[in-house]
Amino acid sequence: MAWSRPVGWILDNLVYRTTVAGRSNVPTGGPVIFAGNHISFLDGPVMFGAAPRPMHILVKQEMFRGFLGGVLTAAGQLPVDRRRGRAALQRCRNVLDAGRCVGILPEGTRGSGDASGINGGVAWLALQTGAPVVPVAILGTRQGSEHLDSVPRPGRRLHVNFGRALTLAAHAGESGRASMDRAAQEIRAALAGHVQDAIELSGQRLPVSNDPQDVAAVAGTPADDH
């Protein structure tokens, strides 16, 4: 990912004007799961460019075709087949076990970005690997009533805020499913609260929700059927 880190910096600092807060909240070593809210297809690249550490981001498998697919593979991004999420989760686990970082957009679909619901993949990874989860608020990549597929004009002000790391573990006597559900709820609450804090800090509001039937499935998490 050595060459792709500068590309992320260019996106955040030359194409757009990105204000970054909370970098000191990111552990400087060991595995980390970055969990960001999701409002635009640019959220992953913007988070990648703003983070103080390189990460492997889950990207939907359909993007790994042709020239773009080669670029994504060379940049170290991880394909996810939403119909078969276990394989992607295992790849992420291997990355985390090696002490590296994974970026996930656990809402799973582009929407208002308020983290009102998340899929369970991020909770499974946190429990299986012990990696801390850093909530990431991404604001400005879509505004107002802009369409889900809209591309922000160059020069727009974006905001990325890294929250305090959250470490999760199973409780004694707790079933696997109960642990998963509790961990997912803790992550959802942490991300939702952090997004609201970032809104107050930056003054940048979330976009208006689109009609649910128009919400597009995107890279982020496998279904929580594991």
Rank of each mutant, 00 (worst) to 15 (best):
W9H: 11
D12G: 09
N13G: 00
N13K: 13
V15N: 02
V15Q: 04
Y16Q: 01
T19K: 09
T19P: 00
V20C: 01
N25Q: 08
G29D: 13
P31A: 03
V32K: 03
I39H: 01
S40D: 01
G49R: 05
A50M: 02
A50V: 04
A51N: 07
I57R: 10
V59S: 15
V59E: 08
K60I: 12
M63R: 14
F67P: 05
L68P: 08
G69F: 04
A75K: 13
Q77A: 13
D81Q: 12
R84W: 04
R93F: 11
V95N: 11
A98N: 14
I104Y: 13
T109C: 09
S116E: 07
G120R: 07
V122Y: 01
V122M: 04
A123I: 06
W124V: 12
A126K: 11
L127R: 08
V133H: 13
T141M: 06
R142W: 04
G144S: 11
G144R: 15
S145N: 09
E146T: 11
S150K: 07
V151C: 02
P154A: 14
R156W: 02
L158T: 04
F162N: 04
L168T: 06
A169K: 12
A170S: 11
H171L: 05
S179A: 15
D181S: 06
R182S: 03
R182G: 05
A184G: 04
Q185N: 02
Q185E: 09
E186W: 00
L191A: 01
L191R: 02
A192D: 00
V195A: 11
L201W: 03
R205Q: 15
A216N: 06
A217P: 06
A217G: 14
V218A: 12
G220P: 14
T221F: 06
